[in-house]
Design a protein around this nucleic acid. Structure first.
Length: 791
RNA sequence: GCCGGAGUGGCGGAAUCGGUAGACGCUAUGGCCUCAAAAGCCAUUGUCCUUCGGGGCGUGUGGGUUCGAGUCCCACCUCCGGCACCA
């Protein structure tokens, strides 16, 4: 037997799989009843090379892919590249050169790394966001959303990253900073394109109940959508003949509203201030307060000024002063609030600072006080009663508010899908007709961000005839957020070469929803929310037959380096070098053996050696076993039983428990047993079992060993099934306890009666010593496990 | 502040339904093999006590339930994550 040569073996099998297109998923034909499985991991940004985090992510998906294939499924396991957008463009700037060249070079090198890892990818379905054949359909989808009113353009305060020189979605501002570069985000008023994701807020919330996702991820989305129920109440400003609506979750505290506050950005500020003595003071306060960065606003003491106006509290007719103050947010509710200092911490803080009255309306017992005819009513019940009463006079109605904002997706950057609209002086905003798609991204020399979109200075691109009137028009110079691209890529995989439509519904319905999605939890409130929104909208239009894209979701942990999350921007550990040194199989086993896959890993290369050692041990033991005669079917030795037990454990771990470290330990145990009993008549069966079970983890060496055992094509061999009869133990180790403490262990036949087990326990000298002649008060027997004698 | 998740040997971790705590691997120590090294193999490896038979203690802390708790309940500590002037 030759020694184990990882590189020779891996290259050879990779060539076989490539030549055979072994992992190409066949679309189902009519009446095709084969079980299907759609396995997907989040696609990479081609902004450099793969790092160990990717290796974990895709190896995990690979184990699932092989396991599902071998348990009889037709598995779709595609791959693509999120090649548009900030991450890719910033990489191009960093590496120097044009984005297209850099990105295509990176895609080639990442694809090569993926092949070297031996991942079972369907290479015929690769899609990249920056290819015109892909963004053609991203633009086409834009037009569908636009014509249904789910996309609109509006001037609004948005998040501006001064470093990346572009607007960011709320989802990508983390602690007031840009998710990519970490620069402090500024507020700017700009005309931007928005997806009306808020129209789906309730469905995005409610349908979480229908999908198998980690609770924490559901929680993140629930928090982010932030639904709160309450009421909208009208406060009247008599002097101006004006009704101002406010949202409150505490209508029960209405009698305690002692003042009224408007956000500095609110258009109401001017309406209220005009014609009062305080007008100038109010205007200048509002201007300064509104311009202050959000971060500063959160930390500073609350400030505000009185407007000189009063509003009437609808419950008791009291005239309460209207203030403008920086602690009220324009983005939430109506940008105006009723202030109840007795029962709201922020209002109290403000009332104390400005000497405003505080009236308690809910007593310690939870019943209303100082609340007119509602005195004595429990607050919980008074909520609805007060709203009902006010609504009879048209002064309130039940209301719901969301924290979720519409998704701002236009970017003042070059490297993205052009937004397919034309501005015409005569016709306004005119969509590009479907027939004129794609609007190609032009090749430009200077694509760097400089405050205005780079495309705006490309006259050839910008000047176009208005599709409606034929007059002179200007194209939209902003491009789309890359999260638009990744909101539907998983659908394109089902029909990747379609030139007539983004996809054919029948093909998508056949594969979708994705059975198992794997990716980082950092996309919990961005990508994972946007994609759900896209699918719901498309389902409403009849483009799809399902309402959730990702049936089951799993988050792999971070691979950390020195306590920090690994990313391309750090010079981390190179998978290429590790493959050179140890081989892909050892790396694959190693990264999954570290611990539960959803747990963070502190990267250290210590221990990869041990995996190489394990593979060599397996190699040696299997070759020894291969020289022995085939195991008889009926072989019923301890080794045969161990093999069946291992099949059961590994299968249950991968299938039901979705854990990937313990199967490796189980196979190691089997290999240890085999090496201790090389002469066992089941030796060959044990070797075959170990190789077969390890194949999803180490497909190259297992394929090689499968050959050595006289078989072929393990990647399409059925997954082994444990024989029930071999899982039943003939002999068990009976644990003997006295007063709950283990005192002895004896081997006894399985299936003994309670009395027989108790007899064994009493027969033990060690048990007798601890019984010490005491009186037995109770005997607990767990059949085939233990006997506990209580004295 | 509110809401999640997690704390187990020198290290990564295992213990799936309340029933043998520490599987599997790393590290370390001792030994075998060898002229030597590499590779491989064997043994020990939670902690304290021991007359070497064993015995006490031990899963973040303190209580509780139970014949029996890493696992269930209560309170607390620490770490990680989400939300946060959201009315």
């Amino acid at each position: 037997m030759d020694g184990y040569d990882a590189h020779e073996i891996e290259a050879r099998w990779q060539a076989v799989w490539e030549a055979e297109q072994a992992f190409h998923a066949r679309d189902p034909g009519p009446g095709d009843e084969r079980p299907r499985f759609y396995q997907l991991e989040m696609l990479p940004y081609p902004s450099g090379h793969l790092h160990m985090g990717h290796v974990l992510n895709y190896t995990l998906g690979d184990v699932v892919t092989h396991f599902r294939r071998r348990t009889g499924h037709e598995v779709l396991r595609p791959m693509g590249f999120d090649s548009f957008g900030l991450p890719a463009e910033n990489a191009a700037i960093r590496e120097g050169g044009k984005p297209l060249e850099i990105i295509e070079r990176n895609i080639a090198s990442i694809s090569n790394q993926m092949r070297r890892m031996g991942w079972a990818i369907d290479w015929q379905r690769v899609v990249s966001a920056h290819e015109p054949t892909y963004y053609h359909w991203t633009q086409w989808l834009f037009l569908r959303f636009l014509e249904r009113g789910l996309i609109y353009r509006k001037e609004a305060p948005v998040n501006w990253c001064p470093n990346d020189q572009t607007v960011l979605a709320n989802e990508h501002v983390v602690d007031g900073r840009c998710w990519r570069c970490g620069a402090v985000v500024e507020a700017r008023n700009m005309a931007q394109w928005f997806f009306k994701i808020t129209a789906y807020a309730d469905q995005l919330l409610d349908d979480l109940a229908t999908i198998d996702w980690p609770e924490r991820t559901k929680k993140i989305q629930t928090n982010w959508i932030g639904r709160s129920e309450g009421a909208e109440v009208l406060f009247r400003v008599d002097e101006l003949d004006l009704d101002i609506p406010v949202f409150t979750t505490r209508p029960d505290t209405l009698f305690g509203a002692t003042f009224f506050v408007v956000a500095p950005e609110s258009p109401l500020v001017e309406t209220l201030a005009a014609g009062t003595e305080q007008a100038d003071e109010v205007r200048s306060y509002a201007r300064v307060a509104a311009a202050r960065p959000t971060e500063e606003r959160e930390q500073r003491e609350k400030t505000g000024v009185f407007t000189g106006r009063h509003a009437t509290n609808p419950v008791n007719g009291e005239r309460i002063p209207i203030w403008v103050a920086d602690y009220v947010l324009m983005e939430y509710g109506t940008g105006a609030i009723m202030a109840v200092p007795a029962h709201d911490e922020r209002d109290r803080e403000f009332a104390q600072a400005y000497a405003l009255p505080i009236v308690t309306v809910v007593g310690d017992d939870g019943a209303l006080v100082n609340s007119g005819s509602f005195d004595g009513r429990p607050a919980a019940e008074a909520k609805a009663e007060i709203v009902t009463w006010l609504s009879e006079h048209g002064r309130a109605k039940p209301g719901i508010n969301y924290r979720l904002r519409d998704w701002s997706f236009s970017r003042q950057r070059y490297w993205g899908a052009p937004i397919p609209v034309v501005y015409c002086d005569a016709c306004g905003i005119v969509p590009v007709p479907d027939g004129d798609l794609p609007v190609l991204l032009p090749d430009v020399d200077d694509y760097r961000p400089k405050g205005k979109p780079p495309l705006a200075s490309n006259e050839q691109f910008m000047n176009v005839a208005c599709p409606s009137c034929g007059g002179p028009g200007r194209r939209e110079a902003d491009t789309m957020d890359t999260f638009v691209d990744s909101s539907w890529y998983f659908l394109r995989y089902c029909d990747p070469r379609n030139g007539e439509a983004p996809f054919e519904r029948a093909k998508v319905d056949a594969w979708m929803p994705i059975d198992q999605y794997i990716g980082g939890i950092d996309h919990a409130k961005g990508h994972l929310l946007y994609s759900r929104f896209f699918v719901k909208a498309m389902n409403d239009w009849g483009m799809l037959g399902f309402r959730e894209p990702f049936q089951r979701l799993f988050h792999q942990g971070w691979v950390r380096l020195g306590g920090k999350k690994m990313s391309k921007s750090q010079s981390g550990v190179s998978p290429d070098e590790l493959i050179d040194q140890f081989g892909a199989d050892a790396i694959r086993i190693y990264i999954l053996f570290q611990g539960p896959a959803d747990q963070d890993i502190d990267w250290t290369p210590d221990g990869i050696d041990a995996m190489v050692r394990f593979i060599r041990r397996l190699w040696r033991v299997v070759h020894e076993a291969a020289a022995r005669p085939p195991s008889p079917e009926a072989a019923d030795t301890p080794l045969a039983r161990k093999a069946h037990e291992t099949i059961a454990r590994v299968t249950d771990d991968i299938d039901r428990r979705f854990v990937f470290n313990t199967p490796i330990a189980a196979v190691m145990e089997l290999v240890n047993e085999l090496s201790k009993a090389p002469e066992d008549e089941a030796a060959r069966f044990a070797a075959e079992t170990a190789v077969s079970l390890l194949q999803p983890y180490a497909p190259h060496v297992c394929e090689e060993l499968w050959d050595a055992l006289g078989h072929s094509r393990l990647w399409e061999a059925p997954w082994p099934v444990a024989e029930e009869s071999k899982l039943v133990r003939e002999e068990i180790e009976l644990v003997l306890q006295v007063n709950g403490k283990v005192r002895d262990r004896v081997r006894v036949p399985a299936g003994l009666s309670k009395d027989e087990l108790i007899a064994h326990a009493r027969a033990s000298e060690k048990v007798q010593a601890h019984l010490n002649g005491g009186e037995e008060r109770r005997v607990v027997v767990v059949p085939d496990k233990l006997v506990n004698i209580v004295v």
